[in-house]
Design a protein around this nucleic acid. Structure first.
Lengths: 351, 351
DNA sequence: CTGAAAGCGCTAACAT
DNA sequence: ATGTTAGCGCTTTCAG
């Protein structure tokens, strides 16, 4: 059995008959080394199966060359696409990506920011909407400052800024605008009684979507009927159950705006089961444009968010990679991406 | 502006008027410390916003408390569910999880194993089928040995062992058995001409599925018709294009076994477009049982793999957590989970 | 072009 | 109960 501990740079140095400084130089290629020396060192590395210790490196040098991302859940496509963008852009900049999941727990989220800070991540990216909660916001703010002081950056991706006095960078998308646009589209098609379904009521994401929805209604002189708004959660089950219940109680509406595509999938299934045809009898729209939107029948008309691009922007912002080559620009601190509606087959004029 | 470098344990010690060892003790709670001292130290930590440096810790102590997972792509649900299992089980054992993506590149995969080794991950989990390639297998084997020597573990999750002389642990699922079962189900329903579609031909995953398929055929005395096997890739597009082409050339078949659910989604869309009804005219089955299977209409009959459980097993195996409390058992090195067919609405007897 | 030596921030004996 | 003191493995001046 081989010994249970790896070779160190000193072992390599001894074997190659040089100093450890020289070994470091051939590894990092940041300093001239004679070819013959380099070859001897490389041979020693291979023979010993030497693998540098990233911790010792991080400790001696400065940066750890990693970025951390904190999301709710890897299997949720909303997060997965953002994570993909982060992962890819991090790779482009030679960074390793650490993905952590909160399962929606605030405490876990705060603990993960700390953990990533301990790891000395070059950036920690917090993804997804935030619940309104002053105490929690204060905790996040405290950590943002700590990270900033340590030379790292907290970036908020898809959630509102914590205020100008909190050192974060933010990547936002036009959430309200997307909701406005798709509601207006529904109105244009002739719908007047539109059911808004899903989304945790205190989540910033839900609030913005609801605000856009309401603004569109008001712009057309339509009052927002209280019985038509049913927030709750972002899962499929909610859409399914709620539609079943509302159908049973005979509520009057001609279209449904699901707070996201997942909820819309549940909505469509409930409608299907009740024998209600989409879009002939009821129109349905969603939000996010994740893959399921294209699998539903009819295919779902929804709002597209450039999720992967948001992830990329988050790491660019954090790493200070110039978007434009304007060398006089101050360090950019906020990026905003647009949303757009994608029309498929789930909307028709009401009967 | 606060100074741009974080407080160290020495700063905390000075401020609290104790030695750094004492600070270390209160942080790690692994040694008695007087209550009054502890309080002073905690106050100092809070005032300074001290956050321990995980690298210094990893360097001084031994383990880094992280596990790494290498997958093709975060947004692919097959990988995402396994990643979720890894993430959750890692958390249970107090480990942080680093997720890395290869985009299907062998070189990147090897580089990532090295990277994770450099990070001194407690385990590196390699997920998904492998291509047949001796040189590549040798490279993976070399890294498995290096990891082993360093006291870490390479676990192969969903791919075949590299042989008994290579120190890895493996989590496998009954891939061949699932393919056998679902093919047999199709035959039982009366199908004789079954199209096998998709999966990279040299990937171990595809090979096993095809083998199970063939075995079921043979067991029923049916010869495998060459024109009925079309491997290719695991994406939706492949399923769509291939079915369109085969339909156009008038190939005779009554059922399609898509190598995974994603391919099945493409298959179903092509069938829909061609006006072929499922399952009345053509039956379709998939593999994996990822969410899309339930969104398709009709819902897809497919083979279920306990993906998340595989991820959990992988970390348990790597960390040496006893599955059973059999304290005499040797260190377990392989786990195998079963697959099962889930019957939904996409299969019917042929006309 | 190469070596010597001083840390980086922390933990773990070993003292007291 | 607390302090002292070595390192952990690497990078990086500073000297040759």
């Amino acid at each position: 059995m081989t010994e249970m501990s790896s070779a160190t740079i000193a072992d390599v140095a001894k074997r190659a008959g040089v100093s450890s400084a020289t070994v470091s130089r051939v590894i990092n290629r940041n300093y001239p080394v004679a070819t013959s020396t380099r070859e001897r060192v490389e041979a020693a590395i291979a023979e010993l199966g030497y693998v540098a210790n990233a911790h010792a490196r991080a400790l001696a040098g400065s940066t750890n060359r990693t970025v951390g991302i904190i999301i709710n859940d890897v299997v949720d496509p909303f997060y997965a696409y953002i994570a993909r963008g982060v992962e890819r852009e991090a790779t482009v900049h030679g960074r390793l990506c650490m993905v952590c999941c909160t399962q929606g727990s605030h405490e876990k989220e705060l603990a993960l920011i700390d953990l990533l800070h301990e790891q000395r991540a070059d950036a920690v990216i917090l993804v997804g909407g935030a619940h309104e909660d002053r105490a929690y916001a204060a905790e996040v703010g405290r950590r943002a400052r700590a990270l900033h002081t340590a030379g790292s950056t907290l970036v908020l991706c898809g959630r509102p800024s914590l205020g100008d006095d909190v050192p974060t960078k933010v990547v936002e998308y036009d959430n309200e605008g997307g909701a406005f646009a798709i509601t207006d589209y529904l109105i244009t098609q002739g719908h007047r009684r539109i059911l808004f379904l899903g989304g945790p009521p205190s989540l910033s994401t839900t609030i913005a979507r609801l605000a856009g929805h309401r603004r569109a209604l008001e712009m057309r002189g339509l009052a927002q009927a209280k019985e038509l708004v049913h927030t709750g959660s972002f899962n499929r089950r909610f859409g399914y159950d709620k539609v079943r219940a509302l159908l049973a109680e005979g509520l009057d509406f001609t279209a449904i705006f699901a707070a996201n595509d997942t909820v819309a999938a549940g909505v469509m299934q409930a409608l299907e089961l009740a024998g209600v045809s989409v879009p002939e009898e009821i129109s349905v729209v969603g939000y996010d444009d994740v893959p399921v939107a294209q699998e539903l029948r009819p295919q779902l008309t929804t709002v597209r968010i450039p999720l992967e691009e948001m992830g990329r922007q988050a790491v660019r912002l954090a790493l200070g990679v110039a978007g434009e080559s304007d060398y006089l620009a101050p360090v950019q601190t906020t990026t905003r991406v647009g949303t757009s509606i994608v029309v498929r087959g789930s909307v028709a004029p009401p009967r």
